[in-house]
Amino acid sequence: MSGLDKRTWFVLVLLAGLAVLPLIATATGNEFQIGQFRRILIFAIAAVSLDLILGYGGMVSLGHAAFFGVGAYVVAILNWHADREVPLFGMMLGTQNVLATWTAAVVVSAGLAFLIGLVSLRTTGIFFIMITLAFAQMVYFFFVSLRAYGGDDGLRFPGDTVVLGVIDTENDTAFYYLVLGVLCATLYLCRRLVNSRFGMVVQGCRENERRMRALGYPTYLYKLAAFTLAGGIAGLAGALFAAHESYISPSIMHWTRSGDLIVMVVLGGMGTLIGPVAGAVAFLFLEKTLPDYTEHWMIVFGPILLLVVLFARRGIFGWFLPPEERDRHGH
């Protein structure tokens, strides 16, 4: 299978490239850009989590940024309480322990995904798209109206900078490699997941949910589990984002951010896991560099998006695969 070889090559080259990026930046005197690269990797994790439900599960969720944002807010709020020594829920629940805050971020995001999935997965098609969007908007407004945590203006907080007693997030490069490590772990875990029995069921739901039910699968439960899991991973990405920025505002869970995540997944190649990483890199790179050429880059980018949809569905990853492999992954 030469296709598998190419696939492995793609993964290795992409990850190796990301691994040496800080070295190149340092060698060329561009250390200040390492933070930007880290931001890209954080969104890549969120994009991979979306691929789990969008690419493998066929669930067009237009509200994924909500889970990302909630994860970030959990970290921010816990830190803020610990810093100000203000009780949370009447108890001294605030904490700056990174393990505790990141775990809490995953749990709360997954919990929220579970609740939203509970209602929205009762529907399919256009309904599902609109409902996930509406719920995400509800979460967005919830944080906009939380004046205690800055509302529209967002929340700035001093975070703990030492992770697991070794990695200092003040150190751009060290934090970069931590995020890269989380990304690689996410990719590996998701790879196992999509090929497991559970992953096959989720893919079966994408291919033909009616048939799955007739075979004896309670598809709702499996889709809900996948939706919850994806929400949890997005929450983890959000937690990293909060640590990365030391600042958080509702704008990161605006519905257009959910749209951006979908664009990253499709641009990179959905249902491939590694594709969305490439998609996030490409999207955020364009978002950063295109404005240097024209202030109005969106007027170019919008139609490009339309053209990609109409003519280049495979995504970046698809270009690297021989045709027969594409059919297995392209969907």
Binding site: L54, V60, L62, G125, I126, I129, T256, G259, I262, V263, V266, M298, I299, F301, G302, P303, I304, L305, L306, V308, V309, L310, R313
Partner: peptide
């Protein structure tokens, strides 16, 4: 539907 979401999202940006 995904194609439609993406394409019309592109229209919004435009």
């Amino acid at each position: 539907h995904l194609d439609q979401v993406l394409a019309t999202f592109g229209l919004i940006l435009f």
